[in-house]
Amino acid sequence: MPATLRWLGRRLILAAFVVFGAATAAFAAMNLMPGDPVLTILGSTNPTPALIAQVRSDLGYDEPFAVRYAEFLGRLVHGDLGQSYQLREPVTEVITGQLLPTAELALTAFVLALAVAAVLAVTTAGRRPAVRRVVSALELLTTSSPGFWIGILLLTFLSFRIHLFPAAGGDGVNGLVLPAITLALGMTGVFSQVLRAGLERALEEPYALTARARGTGETAVRTRHALRHALIPVLTLSGWALGTLLSGAVVVETVFGRRGIGRVMATAVIGRDVPTVTGVVIVSAVFFTLINILVDGLYRVIDPRLRQEKA
């Protein structure tokens, strides 16, 4: 498939450009920051002039801008994102060390959102307007609520009042339930809307009609035939979901005191630990770009018409 290969090559070059641009923007941000980063690094202590000078030369802040930019890019190519101001360890290590709990939380939330959305869509697609309307209004309500509030409410009433779930820590399934629900809630509404739209389209397609004519039960038609097709548009939301999950994790991990990239990010922004912030941002930009290429690629596989079009 030379057309697909050409397409992939083009996309990858574009992606490389985008990531390079993102990294440059991040570097610019780091250096635009008003104030002396060395003082920020030294934190609440009262640093002696000797200590300030030592830290400045260790971090290379006494070198000219261009040199630092070149060094920044050079390090980036080797996967080195610099040193965190607050945590005093390499940003790469911070991210790899915190990736797992966030991935666990995000994946659980994603699966939960998709599952609930599928159930909602299958049971309400094409049904009486009254039912649909109530469900739709609920979906809109969940997308109108800030995640941190939902989290606080769940904590207040399910953890503090009736001790149904642990209030802190990420150990075990029990500790995952409330954060995952909080993170999933807003996404569920969007997924179920998209799924229902797809389902309603699919239920009018010939194959659905044929299946019904063959005597397949309505539930089977919906879950076995129509749902599969309806899931395709959800695919396009993957990139958006990644962004939502990451931004959501910042708040949810803070509320529930969970460890993970989100909490690192929240603390880093408050403390203006710019290397950590840019590190997380660059890494997520890379992930995001790759996911978008993957989604477009899958679409080309699924829908052959796209292959003919010029990318």
């Binding site: 904590l155 953890s159 503090f160 001790h163 642990p166 209030a167 802190a168 820590g169 150990d171 803070t254 509320v255 529930f256 005191g257």
Partner: peptide, 18 residues
């Protein structure tokens, strides 16, 4: 030593026996 910066979450960890 566990680290739980959130005050309410930390107290919750104590009351729930974590």
């Amino acid at each position: 030593f566990q680290f739980i910066p959130e005050n309410s979450a930390r107290l919750g960890a104590l009351t729930s026996g974590q």
